[in-house]
């Protein structure tokens, strides 16, 4: 799950980027409205963590631009002003959730998972496919009740596919979900991770749609 963090304070931005990565998110972080606009134009994100007070404008403007462009990526507002009036203004502008500073890192992660879950139309936290069960909150995967150990990248790919069952993901789209900007993408990485997943979970789980990409297969 790829998350864009827009926060101008260096220490907090760094903390969110590293902390959310530890919680299983792929994170990108920017410090200004301009950089946020550039990032949003270039990539798709599953969620945005947005600070309201930025040096070159308000996070509210980013939110307005986003919503007026029919982009309904879930947005979690982070702000120091958390009076009722501010919260109402934020939510009415199109934010999906709201957290006042200082916040708990685990709560940010939990809310982001909840936002992503709701945006894909599911009510329960865990994802299930055949005998497979993926719990985003604990980052755990079970097959027929038996825990399966996955690496971070493998988990990310499986999470992406299970969040959108039936959808076909191209290799570049999966790479987008796996890597932040600063990270170097190894060639064939996606193929390698898919190979590992198949060997751990059974060959039929991930289907290759030739020339297009990958999707969940019928057999668990």
């Amino acid at each position: 799950m790829r998350v864009l963090i827009v926060e101008d304070d260096d220490i907090l931005r760094d903390g969110l980027k590293v902390g959310l990565a530890l919680a299983g998110f792929t994170t990108d972080a920017v410090g200004t409205c301009d950089a946020a606009a550039t990032a949003l134009a270039a990539n798709g994100f599953d969620a945005i963590v947005l600070d309201l007070m930025l040096p070159d404008g308000s996070g509210m403007d980013i939110l307005k631009d986003l919503r007026s462009g029919q982009n309904d990526t879930p947005v979690l507002l982070l702000t120091a002003r958390d009076t009722v009036r501010d919260r109402v203004a934020g939510l009415d502008t199109g934010a999906d959730d709201y957290l006042g500073k200082p916040f708990d890192l685990d709560e940010v992660a939990a809310r982001l998972r909840a936002l992503s879950r709701r945006s894909t139309g599911r009510a329960t936290a865990a994802l299930e496919w055949a005998s497979l069960r993926l719990d985003p909150a604990r980052r755990s995967v079970e097959q027929a009740g038996r825990p399966v150990q996955l690496s971070r990248r493998e988990y990310s790919i499986l999470h992406t596919l299970m969040a959108h069952p039936g959808l076909i993901f191209s290799k570049t789209k999966l790479e987008d979900r796996l890597y932040g900007w600063q990270e170097e993408i190894e060639s064939n990485a996606v193929e390698v991770h898919i190979h590992h997943l198949r060997s751990k979970l059974g060959p039929g789980l991930i289907e290759t749609v030739r020339g297009i990409g990958y999707r969940l297969g019928g057999a668990g």
């Binding site: 304070d9 220490i11 006042g100 200082p102």
Partner: peptide
Amino acid sequence: LRTPLAGLKTQ
């Protein structure tokens, strides 16, 4: 006042 505190807590 709150942003540095949020930063400290997150780190």
